[in-house]
């Protein structure tokens, strides 16, 4: 019995040394296997019980079990200690949070589409549908049906790109007014965004291709005040709640009365002579609008005694230039990754 106890003491001493020497969980596991495993040292000692007189065996068993319990408990403490040390070590780490981020591989929507979508969303919220059209249109839809006579200068081929005698790249989205009204009975409420073409030399303010958003509302009781209401709302949606909108008389063959629509320059908020966005005028020109000309309504077979309507056409690039403070319209088609990334 005392011999067994001595052995146990030795085992225990070596166990304590091993535990103390273990610095991580794997080392502790090794200690557990070496001492408490199936063929570990404690097992070896336990085998010595068989050599003891039967009367001593129960006590010897108790002594060994007690030792095992102590060892298990020591191992648990050691595990906890090592784990805590690991936590402490990790928690002691710190980083420079100002270090530049690692950018994800993200995609993006083009700023022109983004502005277009925001404008469309505003109108859809108010019950408008959105229609798209083709870019090559017969002159009937681009001119005749829009009350632009055959002798009008816009039809001479100086402003528009012609494909044939009668086909051209649409210079505005207004053909969608005619197409929508011809295929639907009133009332009608649509916006039609899309690409248009004009024979403009390319510079910082002009591209020969650009996007327009056309709007058309025809129903009973629609008047100019409604046009002002909707377009004022649009400008506030796009540029901020304090935007003011100005309607100036103008001339378009397909509207009467007609208006040019301006909004306050969101950059200088008024007359700052040095402002590069508005040229110092304090206003940004958005495009044309007006009450649909009775000749246009008659052309599509709408009863002008019952129905009135308004239409407008805004340049989307112009909206985007203004919204993002972009200096040069060519950036939209330059495919510069930096440009696309900045506005993504």
């Amino acid at each position: 019995m005392s011999e067994l106890a001595t052995k146990l003491d030795h085992v225990q001493t070596r166990f304590e040394e091993a535990v103390a020497a273990a610095t991580d969980e794997r080392a502790l596991d090794a200690v557990r296997v070496a001492f408490l495993g199936r063929s570990g040292e404690v097992t070896t000692v336990r085998r010595g019980i068989g050599a003891l007189p039967p009367a001593e065996r129960p006590d010897a068993g108790k002594v060994i079990n007690a030792a095992v319990e102590r060892m298990e408990s020591a191992l648990a403490d050691a595990t906890a200690r090592i784990e805590n040390r690991a936590f402490e070590a990790e928690l002691a780490q710190s980083v420079d949070v100002t270090f530049p981020a690692i950018a994800p591989t993200t995609g993006s929507i083009h700023p022109v589409r983004r502005v277009l979508q925001d404008a469309v969303a505003y109108f859809e919220r108010h019950g408008f549908a959105t229609v798209l059209g083709m870019e090559i249109e017969p002159d009937y839809y681009t001119f005749d049906a829009l009350n632009i006579p055959a002798t009008h200068p816009a039809r001479e081929g100086f402003d528009s790109f012609f494909i044939s005698d009668t086909l051209l790249l649409r210079p505005h989205t207004s053909p969608m007014q005619i197409r929508t009204m011809q295929s639907h009975e009133p009332p009608i409420a649509v916006v039609a965004p899309g690409k248009c073409y004009r024979r403009d030399a390319v510079d910082a303010r002009h591209l020969f291709q650009f996007h327009q958003i056309e709007g058309l509302l025809v129903a009973e009781g629609i008047h100019f005040g409604h046009l002002k209401g909707m377009l004022t709302g649009l400008c506030r949606e796009l540029f901020g709640a304090d935007q003011r909108v100005r309607f100036r008389p103008s001339f378009f063959p397909f509207t009467e009365p007609s208006a040019e629509v301006d909004t306050t320059c969101p950059k200088c908020k008024g007359r700052t002579s040095a402002c590069n966005m508005c040229g110092g005028s304090g206003w940004i020109e958005l495009g044309g609008a007006g009450m649909v000309h009775p000749n246009v309504l008659r052309e599509v077979g709408y009863d002008t005694e019952i129905y009135t309507g308004w239409a407008f056409g805004f340049g989307i690039e112009r909206l985007a230039l203004t919204r993002y403070d972009i200096d040069d319209i060519r950036r939209f088609v330059e495919c510069d990754p930096d440009f696309l990334t900045q506005l993504a």
Partner: peptide, 17 residues
């Protein structure tokens, strides 16, 4: 005076857009 219009129901589809 600017007024927000009450836009009547209509049957134009926005599917392409």
């Amino acid at each position: 005076e600017p007024v927000e219009p009450a836009v009547p129901a209509h049957d134009v589809s926005s599917a392409e857009y």
